[in-house]
Nucleic acid binder design. Sequence first.
DNA 1: TAGGCCATCTGGTCCT
DNA 2: AGGACCAGATGGCCTA
Length: 312
Amino acid sequence: MLTLPFDEPPPTRSSSPFRTSWASNQLVQSVKTEPGRAPEESEREDEERDGEEEEDEEEQAGGLKIRGPHKKKLSQARLDRVRLRRIEANARERNRMHGLNNALDSLRKVVPCYSKTQKLSKIETLRLAKNYIWALSEILRTGKRPDLLTFVQTLCKGLSQPTTNLVASCLQLNVRSFMSEPGEESFSLYPAYQYHHGPEGVGSSSADSGRPLRPSGSFCGPYKAPYDSPSPDCSSPLDAVTLSPPINFNGIFTLKHEDSVDYRSCHYGLRYCSISQSSSAELGPYDVHLRDQFYQVQEKSNKHFQSHIGGD
DNA sequence: TAGGCCATCTGGTCCT
DNA sequence: AGGACCAGATGGCCTA
């Protein structure tokens, strides 16, 4: 019998059959009885264990070689050693995957819409992170700030509907406003501004009324393609005309998080962004600021936006 | 109940 | 030889 050869406690998932066999700490037995283990493997090992004098019977089936090169018979001691190594390898693999999952958790915390209660799946986390990186890098590259809706659209490219919904709800956007294909009749935009202030505060889109969606000189001018280069998913930039709500997404969204995030500990994006003062000013409220400037700037930005809304 | 997601085991490959 | 990495297989859990 082996004791746990690993410094890490067993995984917490008690329902796993592997976990059960692991917890039982019955080395050989676990090898024999592990669910999910191909039965023929166990049989093979039994043969190997029992018939050392037999000449590789399992390698021949109807005259066809079904396994690799001729193998030497393993002594019982060697067999035990192989099993031990297998179990150690399993533990290492488990730890490796735990490390990978920890890294993914870290990633979840620094992409938009982090929530402990509604975790993004692994694949969605990676996709969102990729979109996020791409969008931020485009902002830095062009020095232009896209409007919120476009930013969200970019973030959601390639994401599943549920994740898209999550991002949208985090940003308090009407999902339909950016899920609809450009050109579709239903492509109306009801961003957070309307969400908060009602339709009268928004009016209709500038496409069907002469009235701009926001005061001139406000945060977002009439829509322009926000990015010069295609998105990572090779979609064309999405068309949108929108009014940007007072949401900061300089890597940090003002979101409806169930679990509030301590942004001071999440200085994602800020570490590796060194932007000039001028470009920083140009970027406006959504853009990357040095960490120690963040709260100050955010407050200013929101005030600025509020004053526009109030005066409209 | 099907499908998505996940944790784990496993054997193969590559590298040191 | 042994560790890291990878992909396939398997089975459990959860949700629509």
